[in-house]
């Protein structure tokens, strides 16, 4: 599923411009990093893809569907096709690891047998099989992020959005998370990653879109972190 940002602008309170006529296309199975200083508009961009925010102008297309013209019900379907991972993990605190992942599958209307077989499998994929019955508060940051990734990929989405997923992690965990994202990409999923971490970008060696003050200033196919 290709992603198209077509001349997208976002203004807050009519004067603060978060995004200014941003246009780009992400082809299926790409691994794209979006970099830029804080407040450049990276998160706004991702939030629009999840239909959490509406553009002031322009269109955001998934394949050829403008997602901001969809009803709330259809947005739920789109969200099940997009797995999201955040800096602050956003796990459900009263559910254990198994239930956190199962919840995403339940939300997608998957039957019990599939949930029972897929959850342990996806946890093995992020190397967290031993913590299946733990609650989020019993996990380290790196472990929480792996649960979040497992939750994001369990419905076999077409796209993974990772908004600063390594922002709260130490270098070892950062490296692991990036490896997992690369693995997911190799299995055929589009990955969109935002980060501040120069080392992460340089180690991936894939397409990099650089945003500054709401505008795209660079778009390199095998980019480095340049600011």
């Amino acid at each position: 599923m290709s992603i198209t940002f077509d001349n997208v602008s976002k203004k807050y309170n009519n004067d603060y411009v978060a995004l200014d006529e941003v246009s780009f296309v992400i082809k299926p199975n790409e691994f794209v990093s979006i970099v830029g200083p804080s407040g450049a508009g990276k998160t706004t961009l991702l939030r629009m893809l999840l239909a959490e925010e509406r553009p002031t102008h322009g269109r955001v297309l998934l394949h050829d569907i403008d997602i901001h013209l969809l009803s709330g019900k259809d947005i739920n379907f789109v969200r099940r096709k997009i797995g999201a991972v955040f800096q602050d993990f956003r796990l459900l605190p009263h559910k254990n690891v198994y239930e956190n992942i199962a919840f995403a599958m339940e939300a997608a209307g998957r039957p019990d047998e599939e949930i029972e077989s897929d959850v342990p499998h996806v946890l093995e994929l992020v190397d967290l099989g031993s913590k299946i019955w733990n609650f989020p508060h019993e996990l380290s940051g790196g472990e929480k992020q792996r649960v979040a990734i497992a939750r994001a990929i369990v419905n076999q989405p077409d796209i993974i959005i990772a908004d600063e997923p390594t922002g709260n992690l130490d270098p070892v965990n950062t490296y692991d998370i990036v490896q997992i994202l690369k693995k997911i990409n190799n299995l055929g999923t589009t990955v969109i990653l935002t980060t501040h971490n120069k080392g992460v970008i340089d180690s991936i060696g894939r397409r990099v879109i650089t945003i500054q003050d709401g505008r795209i200033v660079r778009d390199d196919m095998t980019g480095k972190y340049i600011l």
Partner: peptide, 16 residues
């Protein structure tokens, strides 16, 4: 309320 927004973010319908 945070939990509710996360649930919606993973695609859970309102009723769910």
């Amino acid at each position: 309320r945070e939990e509710i927004s996360v649930m919606q973010l993973v695609g859970a319908s309102k009723n769910y």
